[in-house]
Design a protein around this nucleic acid. Structure first.
Lengths: 301, 301
DNA sequence: GAGAATAATGAATTTGTCTCACATTGCTGA
DNA sequence: TCAGCAATGTGAGACAAATTCATTATTCTC
């Protein structure tokens, strides 16, 4: 049974118009074409779809079932076509974001909130959990944007600088290291380091300090949530290194001390990786603008 | 955007098979044909439906939307085709019954109950309310069977005799006419006659007795439900004429008397009118058999 | 980097749908 | 009851679209 959308449209038109001739008009084809089509359709179905006894041709019981299907299905097609049109016009689209850096939630959420209001039709999502394979996933179009601090040169991928930040040492106020002016790699040798549960290659402390200096902390404890890390630090269970944007509230609390890493302080830059063909999309450039400016406001606040 | 079922099937196949070549196999067409199709489809949609960066071709975000549509719509098509197949094989169908005679509910319900069990896939319904236009509605395929006591010769319509019945006079036990051996037309002149709310031409008392004798009852009261008619009769508010099958319980009640109309008694025959092309359908002939035999059992009971 | 697997392209062919012209049917009103 | 009209059905040829075969271009894998 070789059913086609054309047939559904035909059935609907015949019902609406009440007759083949009028329906043909609706569909912008000849009455003859429609008649041929009906003949073929009924042959295919093997059922009488129409009552031919009456002169303005009418739908039979089986025809009504087809009509019902048509009235269910056709609007969905139209809806999809609308979606595609919106996609083409740039009003809709997908923005699935992979974050390599676990702490990014903190500034990303406020940015996404702003974004969501400006582009309600864009399908937004954050996908943690593919921290390592994020860039390949970007190339494969499984995600549309990757937040990373290690830009690479890759074909079809662009890295846009977002903002600079400073990974800072955090310890409890009464911690032995709390009086220092700054912290060096060696200082970690006797400490329990609390980190996000990701690979070392994705942690600023290791890539920027401990690994080059070949220093291993006494112990490492992996904790998922930023708030919990701070809790453990406050109660003296360990020390941590966190980006400054996470620490803006902590600075006002008497429980913590935050110190620069090394005498010069460490500075890192965050990038957004996108596919080149996406960079022209208006919602994408808007998101990048927000991600460049909004986190800075938070850092100052 | 010239979407076709073929395209939905294609999208689904590509997703299932994970690649164009395998999908082409599934669909029993060449890989080349499929490739051409995809090209055309993407051109039509104006959106990238696939990720071509990767080698086993994959669906893009927009492609996934199409896939979703396909997975919603295609099973419904298949379901309809199944329905049509059942229709062809004779297991399913429609049996919408119009009753001219209002009292027929009484025997029709038990018959339909039996029928429903034997033919669960047949769409059964009773349609009162088109008492007059029932036969034209039958010709127009708005209903599939008409219960009537006035057979006519009509093209494409067959009348099948069902069973004979006797319209009988009913009155309260203490009614003045209750002692008679039988009732004549003249006896109604001073009575309130309680009937179903239908045209006189459809009421046996009038067609068979009062109209030929040019007798008009003192009053007529129209009541919908058989039980209510009997209630009114019992309390002496009027008399009625009802088919014997309705009266089988009444005969055992001391509240009523039922009497024959005229000395010979009146006998009527009930018919089922169907379209000739339906008469070959197995469920139809089964229904007719049930409607011939089951009411008799009830009359005897 | 070679070879297998996968997808894209081009030209010819097949398939299917449409239109045009005409036949047929059923309904309506004198 | 018959003419006349409006609606539906049919057939042949034109045209467009989908498919195939043969071939080329990719990219993945070892």
């Amino acid at each position: 049974m070789h059913l086609e959308f054309r047939h559904l449209r035909t059935i609907r038109a015949i019902h609406q118009a009440g007759g083949v001739a009028r329906a043909a008009d609706l569909l912008n084809i000849t009455q003859s074409a429609l008649s041929h089509q009906l003949k073929g359709l009924e042959e295919q179905c093997g059922v009488a779809l129409f009552v031919r006894r009456t002169k303005p041709l009418k739908l039979s019981a089986a025809g009504m079932k087809l009509l019902k299907l048509a009235e269910d299905v056709l609007p969905r097609i139209d809806a999809l076509e609308d979606e595609f049109r919106a996609l083409i016009s740039g009003k809709s689209g997908r923005l699935h974001i992979a974050i390599e850096c676990h702490a990014c939630f903190e500034w990303l959420f406020p940015v996404l909130e702003l974004f969501r209001r400006a582009w309600p039709d864009v399908d937004v999502d954050i996908r943690p959990g593919l921290a390592f394979g994020a860039l390949p996933a970007l190339a494969r179009e499984e995600v549309d944007l990757v937040v990373s601090s290690d830009p690479e040169t890759l074909d079809g991928i662009e890295f846009t600088p977002l903002f600079d930040y400073e990974p800072r040492f955090v310890a409890a106020r009464n911690h032995p290291l709390a009086r220092r002016a700054h912290i060096e790699a060696e200082d970690f040798r006797n400490e329990t380091l609390i980190t996000y549960p990701v690979d070392r290659a994705r942690l600023d402390v290791f890539t920027g300090l401990l690994t080059p200096a070949k220093v291993e902390p006494r112990a490492i404890r992996q904790v998922e949530l930023t708030a919990v890390i701070l809790l453990l630090v406050a109660s003296g269970r360990g020390v941590a290194v966190l980006p400054d944007w996470v620490l803006r509230e902590v600075n006002y609390s008497s429980d913590y001390v935050t110190l620069p890493l090394t005498a010069q302080g460490m500075t890192k830059r965050l990038y957004a990786a996108t596919r080149s063909d996406d960079s022209t999309k208006p919602f994408m450039s808007h998101f990048l603008r927000l991600a460049r400016t909004e986190p800075l406001k938070l850092q100052r606040a």
